[in-house]
């Protein structure tokens, strides 16, 4: 088994939930999210984020506004739409369910 690949796929599945959760409390631009997720070791390369953000925005979960920055290019600050807020709430429930059922299996197996 290619552990690296499997782990990468696990991460992939939860990336959307992470982005949405980060944006739940405050608006953020790409670099903010990247540093948060890098700290949590969820992302390896920054580039991964951009297609994801675009897709979520096109699906109507995110919205953004432009903001000038000092010294750098203008930044896209993302916020959750109402649909996004509903989605993240649902995803969180699903996530917690998933974690508890998987833990059940894993723990049973180890005993």
């Amino acid at each position: 088994m290619n552990i690296e690949k499997t782990v990468a796929q696990m991460r992939k599945g939860v990336l959307e939930l992470c982005i949405l959760s980060i944006l739940e409390h405050k608006e953020a631009y790409a670099s903010d999210m990247i540093s948060t997720m890098k700290d949590a070791e969820l992302i390896i390369v920054e580039g991964t984020l951009y297609p994801l953000l675009t897709r979520l925005k096109n699906e109507g979960l995110l919205d953004y506004r432009w903001q000038e920055s000092t010294g750098g290019p203008p930044r896209k600050y993302y916020t959750l739409t109402q649909l996004g807020k509903n989605t993240v709430a649902e995803l969180k429930i699903s996530w917690n369910d998933l974690v508890s059922s998987i833990n059940k299996i894993i723990i049973q197996k180890t005993i």
């Binding site: 990336l15 390369v45 580039g47 897709r55």
Partner: peptide, 11 residues
């Protein structure tokens, strides 16, 4: 390297 090669980026 930080941004990633196209293959790594694609979600």
């Amino acid at each position: 390297k930080a941004m990633g090669e196209p293959g790594e980026i694609d979600d």
